[in-house]
């Protein structure tokens, strides 16, 4: 059984790329979200094995979304996607319950390593 993934990012570009990386590695991307509130909603519906979460999104940011999701499901496996220079935000996200993070620019190998760590 392949693991299911929910990909959250406000940029189609990023969603496409992350989805491609994960799909090529045999994961099943079951949903995408463009905003934090969408992410929370889709997590509730889809119960994916893994969530990739952008930090900066309109409407509800990624960190608030992590808080909401962890409130629903303390075991949620959330991988933050951050950019360079977001040290403080990454720390905050981890404190909120994110399990790991990757940093843009994404290298497929690093994304997959992080995914393994989160799922392992």
């Amino acid at each position: 059984m392949s693991h299911t993934v929910l990909v959250c990012d406000d940029a189609i570009f990023m969603r496409t790329m992350i989805s491609d990386i994960l799909a090529q590695a045999g994961f099943e991307v079951v949903g995408e979200a463009e905003t934090g509130s969408q992410a929370v909603e889709k997590y509730r519906q889809l119960k994916p094995d893994l969530v990739t979460m952008d930090i900066v999104m309109p409407d509800m940011g990624g960190i608030d979304a992590v808080r909401e999701i962890v409130k629903q499901d303390p075991d949620a496996k959330i991988l933050m996607c951050s950019a360079m220079g977001q040290q403080a935000l990454v720390v905050e996200a981890i404190q909120a319950g994110a399990k790991d993070f990757v940093v843009k620019p994404f290298q497929p190998s690093r994304v997959l390593e992080a995914v393994q760590r989160v799922l392992g």
């Binding site: 969603r15 496409t16 989805s19 799909a23 090529q24 590695a25 190998s109 390593e113």
Partner: peptide, 13 residues
């Protein structure tokens, strides 16, 4: 940690 080998299937969205 080398890069894992990946199957060449691409899924576009």
């Amino acid at each position: 940690a080398g890069p894992p080998t990946v199957p060449p299937e691409t899924k576009s969205r």
